[in-house]
Design a protein around this nucleic acid. Structure first.
Ligand SMILES: [Mn+2]
Ligand SMILES: [Mn+2]
Ligand SMILES: [Mn+2]
Ligand SMILES: [Mn+2]
Lengths: 219, 219
DNA sequence: AAATATTTTTAGTCTTGTCTAAATTTTAAT
DNA sequence: ATTAAAATTTAGACAAGACTAAAAATATTT
C-alpha cells in the first residue's frame, strides 16, 4: 500500500514520463507537485526502495512496470470520479479536479468498480482524457492542437490541454464543448489567432486558446 | 479546517459524550480510537487551543458548540456515504463502514449536498442511525433494545447497537432486516434468550443478540 | 486516614513528509 | 579547458501524530 503522498508522486512522475523516454528530473517533479527539489529527492529514495521506480543519482527517475501500474490506477480513479461528479452530481467540468484529487486516494476496489459500472464503463473523462483500464492500459487517441490545423481543416473537439477552471470557464462562455464540430475559417500568420466556425457561429480564437484545445481531425 | 486525525477525535468524543453529561475521559477516547492515552492527551490540548473542546487536566473533555457542530457534520457525511454505498453501489450494510470512514474526510460542501440530494435527503443510515442535518441537529427516535421487551410485546426493527460485520452478517443469515416487524413469543429468565416471530418464522435469539437490536415499540 | 490501584500527564523518542542552507555534481558558456 | 550556472543531493531542522516509560494526580480499598 502507498500513502496519499506517495501516490501523488507516482502520478506526477507517470504524467511527466509519458512524453520523454529519458528519466524524469527532480526539478520537474518538484515543480509539478509545488514542492522543493530536496523533498523530491527524499521521496524518490523511498519509492526506489519500494521498487516502483529506478533511480540513479543525478540521472532522474523512471517508473518500473509496477510503478506504472500503480500510477495508472490512481489516474483511473481520478478520472472515473470526475465523470461521476459531472454525470451524477451536477458538477461542471471546471469544478471536479480538486475533489477528484481527494477521492482518488480512497482505498476500496469495490467502490471504484461499482462507480465504473454505475457510469457505464466510460472511456474518457470530462476533459477528454482517456481512462486507464484495470490493468493500467491507457489508449492514446490521435488528436491535434487546434493551432496546428490549416484553413478549411475541420474536426471534433475532443480534449483540453490546460484544464484550469479559468480556461474551462472561458470555453463555456464561448459555448465551446467537447464533441462539437469545429472548422478553421481564417488563420492569422502574425499572432497565430484564427477564426473558427462552431455551432454555426464564427468566433475569433487567440493563439493561446488554439494551443490548449485538442481536435480529432476528420480524415 | 481540521485534519483527518482531528476529525476522528472530534467524532469519537461526540459519540462518547452523547450518553454522559460529565467530561469524556482520556482513556475512553483512547479505547475508542485504538490509540494510547498519552496520544489522546496531546491531541486534546491541540483541540482545546482550537476552541472545539474544553479541557481541564484530569477532568476529561467536553465539546464546545463549535466542536459539536464540526463532529456532527463528519457524522453526517459518514452516514450519507453509507446510504449512498448501499442504495447506489450495491454494497451490503456490513461492507460500508470502512469505506465511509475514509469518505467522511473528503472536503467539499457541494459534494455532500449533491449526494444528499441524489439520495432524496435520507433521515437514517443503513444501520438505522439518524443522519444529522446541515446545522448538526440529530433527532433521537425513541427505540428500545429487543432484550427489554416483554413477552407478547412487538415492534419494528429500527437499528443495531453493534454494527460489526459479524453481527450484521448474522442478522442477514437469520433474515432479520430493518423495517421488519418482530414479536416476542417466549423469554427465558435463566439466560435472557428469547423466541421471536419475524417474517412469519419463529426463531431463537440469544441474549447477546437481543442486546444489540433496537426495536421501535408499537405503542 | 493511609495504602493501593487506576487514570492521566509528562518526558523523551520515532516516522513521515516537508523545509532551508550548504555542498556536490552536471551542464552550459566562455 | 576553465569558469559560471543550473540542477541535484546532503545535512540539519521542524511539525504532526504516534509510542514507551516514568511521574503525578485521582479514585478506591482497606
Ligand atoms: Mn483532474
Ligand atoms: Mn480530468
Ligand atoms: Mn459506519
Ligand atoms: Mn452506520
Amino acid at each position: 500500500m502507498f500513502t496519499s503522498s506517495e501516490e501523488n508522486y507516482l502520478k506526477a512522475i507517470f504524467h511527466l514520463g509519458i512524453t520523454s523516454n529519458k528519466g524524469v528530473s527532480t526539478n520537474a517533479i518538484a515543480k509539478s507537485l509545488h514542492t522543493k527539489a530536496s523533498s523530491v529527492t527524499d521521496m524518490i529514495k523511498k519509492l526506489a526502495d519500494k521498487k516502483v521506480l529506478v533511480y540513479k543519482k543525478y540521472q532522474g527517475v523512471s517508473l518500473t512496470s509496477e510503478g506504472k501500474k500503480t500510477a495508472a490506477n490512481i489516474i483511473r480513479k481520478h478520472r472515473l470520479w470526475e465523470v461521476f461528479l459531472v454525470e451524477k452530481l451536477n458538477f461542471n467540468w471546471d469544478e471536479v479536479h480538486d475533489v477528484a484529487e481527494q477521492l482518488e486516494h480512497i482505498k476500496s476496489p469495490k467502490l471504484i468498480n461499482e462507480i465504473d459500472a454505475l457510469l457505464g464503463f466510460p472511456k474518457y473523462d470530462p476533459h477528454g482524457d482517456p481512462i486507464p483500464d484495470k490493468e493500467g492500459n491507457l489508449d492514446q487517441i490521435e488528436k491535434s492542437l487546434l493551432s496546428t490545423l490549416a484553413i478549411n481543416e475541420f474536426g471534433i473537439c475532443v480534449g483540453v490541454h490546460d484544464s484550469s477552471s479559468t480556461f474551462l470557464q472561458f470555453l463555456d462562455k464561448q459555448k465551446i464543448a467537447l464533441g462539437q464540430e469545429i472548422i478553421v475559417v481564417e488563420k492569422e500568420d502574425f499572432d497565430g489567432s484564427m477564426v473558427v466556425e462552431i455551432n454555426k457561429n464564427k468566433i475569433s480564437i487567440s493563439n493561446k486558446i488554439a494551443n490548449n484545445l485538442y481536435i480529432k481531425k476528420s480524415q
